[in-house]
Write a protein that binds this DNA or RNA. Structure first.
Length: 273
DNA sequence: GAATACCTGAGC
DNA sequence: GCTCAGGTATTC
């Protein structure tokens, strides 16, 4: 499931492979992943050059052409969106879009569950969706983030998943961040010391930076990034390990549901609520 | 702030 | 044939 680190690597790969390339065609196999009609999408993008790729939280904005004729495609992979840009890639029934470039292999957009969306937006930063997305988790300053979260009474896990407060964390890295900070997922930010919250943000940034670096090595040719056991999976401390022993203290990891999300934590290391 | 819808495949 | 997984918008 793509969270900020995976989206960052997708963006880097798209930019690295395609910046400066002209989009000469767009094949649409399933229009439901587009925010606009295939015709409108083609009209806006085909014939323009990919000029830049920008990430905010889990969103990517692909910039085509130059102002004043620029067009922007905002991409959210949601659960299962993937891009492939491999010469020998053989598309299957889940490939919904094919972006064609004269001097590069086609780029395939694949999405098993069709949750992902690619939609035209007016500009790179001011789309309606991004308006209610908070600052990017990797670059937000502690003072800003602290001011947004410190008074809140909901479980800290839910607030870390809330993209309106800060954007980028998903279920995996939230559980990892809270474990690394030694904070119980049900703890309320209003009850936590400033220094504890500072550590939560610091650990969150650190675990995502580490994941970005790991993705970079397995992701060069876009293959096998999702679904296969990537390098980073071996580093996970709690996610997906309910009932297994804590790697730090050996206690059995607990699994509960918070805000409808499965949550794994160590009752010993992530002490009292 | 909780439940539901959106989807499909994996694993029972 | 059932449950689960999960990001987000929407609806209570």
């Amino acid at each position: 499931m793509p969270e900020l680190p995976e989206v960052e690597n997708v963006g880097r790969a798209l930019k690295g492979n395609l910046q400066g390339q002209e989009l000469t065609g767009l094949q649409v196999n399933f229009a439901g992943v587009l925010g606009q009609s295939p015709r409108a999408t083609r009209k806006a993008l085909v014939g323009k050059t990919l000029t830049n790729v920008h990430r905010h939280g889990k969103y990517l904005v692909l910039a085509f052409g130059e102002e004043p004729d620029a067009a922007y495609l905002m991409v959210h992979l949601r659960m299962t969106g993937q891009f492939f840009i491999l010469e020998e890639y053989v598309p299957d029934k889940h490939v919904h879009l094919v972006f064609e470039f004269p001097d590069a292999p086609p780029v395939y957009y694949r999405d098993v569950r069709k949750f992902g969306r690619l939609e035209l937006v007016a500009d790179a930063h001011a789309s309606e969706e991004l308006a209610h997305v908070g600052p990017d988790m990797m670059t937000v300053r502690f003072a800003d983030w602290h001011q947004r979260i410190a008074h809140r009474t909901a479980p800290i896990k839910s607030l870390l998943l809330n993209q309106g407060i800060a954007a980028g964390l998903g279920n995996i890295y939230v559980d990892e961040s809270l474990f690394l900070a030694g904070v119980h997922p049900l703890a309320r930010p209003c009850d936590l010391d400033e220094e504890v919250l500072r550590d939560v943000l610091k650990r969150g940034k650190a675990v995502m930076r580490l994941a970005i670096d790991h993705g970079g090595t397995t992701f060069l040719n876009f293959t096998n990034f999702y679904g296969k056991p990537g390098n980073f999976k071996r580093k996970l401390r709690v996610y997906g390990r309910g009932g297994e022993p804590c790697r730090d203290c050996g206690a059995s990891l607990e699994k509960i549901v918070i805000g409808g999300r499965s949550s794994v934590f160590c009752g010993e290391c992530q002490g009292g609520i």
